[in-house]
Simulated scan of single mutants.
Amino acid sequence: MRKVRAAAAAGVAVVALAACGAGGGEGAAEGGAPASSSAGGAAGAEEAPAAAASKDVRIVGSGVEDHETWGPKAYVVRYEVTNGGDGAADYFAQFEFLDGDGDVLGSTGVTAEKLGAGKTHKGDTAPLPAEITNGDMADIKSVRVSLVERT
């Protein structure tokens, strides 16, 4: 089921990125609450690949703003993907948008393709109205990284 959700979110991300392009993200967005990552570490002496990949994605700012690509009063997420692996990799990251109670309103995904070892991809994204299925866009108060896949 996780693969199906990831594939569906990846498809939405590819369509959104193809339609709008991935912009560079400099500075923090105005009015946003701090973002948190929900990806946990692996137990034991060695990290699982998924846990290692989750450390490669970071939200650097989020909040409501008037944005050239995403439009007026968009909830914009500025993020960075840094390849912490030994070779080039493709990344998919899923972001969940939360209301004031911490309930998930919806999610969107982004990709970074053929990212070289030690290189960083910077971008920004915003949810499309169709991706917020459990409330309204105006209900978004925070965002978190919910899934990272590195291939």
Score class of each variant (00 low, 15 high):
53 A>V: 00
64 V>W: 12
51 A>R: 05
50 A>H: 12
52 A>L: 12
34 P>C: 05
67 H>W: 09
22 A>V: 15
63 G>E: 03
46 E>F: 11
57 V>S: 01
26 E>N: 10
52 A>Q: 14
44 G>V: 04
28 A>K: 06
66 D>G: 08
37 S>F: 05
58 R>S: 15
28 A>T: 03
63 G>Q: 02
63 G>K: 01
33 A>G: 09
66 D>F: 07
47 E>K: 12
53 A>S: 03
38 S>V: 07
43 A>T: 12
64 V>I: 14
47 E>R: 10
51 A>V: 04
34 P>I: 01
63 G>T: 01
38 S>F: 07
25 G>F: 01
45 A>Y: 07
35 A>D: 11
64 V>S: 10
38 S>E: 14
38 S>T: 11
45 A>F: 10
27 G>V: 00
59 I>R: 00
51 A>H: 05
66 D>V: 09
37 S>K: 10
33 A>W: 06
51 A>K: 04
57 V>W: 00
47 E>L: 12
33 A>V: 05
37 S>D: 11
26 E>Q: 10
59 I>M: 03
39 A>I: 15
32 G>T: 09
60 V>K: 01
25 G>I: 00
50 A>W: 13
27 G>P: 01
55 K>A: 13
32 G>V: 09
44 G>S: 06
40 G>K: 11
33 A>N: 10
49 P>Y: 00
42 A>L: 04
64 V>C: 04
56 D>F: 04
30 E>Q: 14
41 G>K: 13
26 E>W: 08
23 G>S: 12
39 A>G: 15
25 G>V: 00
51 A>P: 05
31 G>Y: 06
22 A>N: 11
46 E>A: 15
54 S>V: 04
21 G>D: 09
65 E>R: 13
